[in-house]
Amino acid sequence: MSDATQMSTASFIPLKLSGQPLVLKITAIMLGTVFLAASSWIEVPMVPVPMTMQTFAVTLVGALYGWRLGAITVLAWLAQGMMGFPVLAGGAGGLAHFAGPTAGYLAGFVVAAAMVGFLAERGWTAGVVRGSLTMLLGNILILAVGWVWLAAMIGAESALIHGVTPFLLGGLLKSLLASLTVLAAGRASLFLR
């Protein structure tokens, strides 16, 4: 079996954290929350939901960490936000963000990180096309959960117009960027072995 075939049929988690010591996993979670916070500060203000690099970071964490550690990292980051740390969009924090217009997207982040990680563990991020589609699925899942929550607040059509449509092109671009980043991380990890 060639390396390319083996890579596409097997797990493709470049960081391979699942078998590592607990202290390394905790360090990865802490670094992941810093990365997620930094992605939140890259913001294009929009109403009712701002555009950030969060979806890029969430899907990337899922792909690099795997489903369990990816979801735990996103949950840890959201817990920091709940405690008031300035880790959410635009450096915000506090419980209000978990009941307002962005709450559905925040919940979708956990599910998307887990789903992308799950697919990565099955080889779905090993190539640019499948990797981009996997990341795009994560973005769509975030938008879907966010839309459901926002629709309950402002109506289905308005939520689609203001909470989904403006994010589609960015989601496509961030999906491609995340896929390329995972592939680069995979190549870099080959050099470190």
Rank of each mutant, 00 (worst) to 15 (best):
V87I: 07
V87D: 02
V87C: 05
L88S: 03
A89M: 10
A89S: 15
A92K: 15
G94Y: 07
L95Q: 12
L95T: 14
A96L: 13
H97S: 14
F98K: 04
F98E: 00
F98I: 03
A99C: 07
A99S: 14
T102K: 00
A103F: 01
G104W: 01
Y105G: 00
L106T: 00
L106P: 00
A107V: 10
G108P: 00
G108R: 00
F109H: 01
F109Y: 06
F109P: 00
V110A: 08
A113T: 08
A114P: 04
M115H: 10
G117W: 06
L119G: 02
R122M: 07
R122Q: 11
T125M: 11
T125Y: 09
T125E: 03
A126H: 11
A126D: 01
V128L: 12
V128I: 13
V129N: 03
R130P: 06
R130M: 10
G131D: 06
S132N: 10
L133S: 07
T134N: 09
M135N: 09
M135F: 05
M135Y: 03
L136V: 08
L137G: 15
L137F: 15
N139C: 14
I140K: 03
I140M: 12
L141S: 11
L141Q: 13
I142W: 00
I142H: 00
I142C: 01
L143R: 05
G146D: 01
W147D: 02
V148A: 14
W149C: 02
A151M: 05
A152N: 13
I154H: 03
G155L: 12
A156H: 12
L160E: 06
H162W: 15
G163Y: 03
G163W: 02
V164T: 07
V164M: 08
V164G: 04
T165L: 15
T165H: 12
P166S: 05
L168R: 02
L168N: 09
L173D: 13
S175K: 06
S175R: 06
A178R: 05
S179P: 01
L180S: 05
L180T: 04
L180W: 05
T181N: 04
L183D: 02
L183R: 14
G186K: 11
G186L: 09
A188V: 14
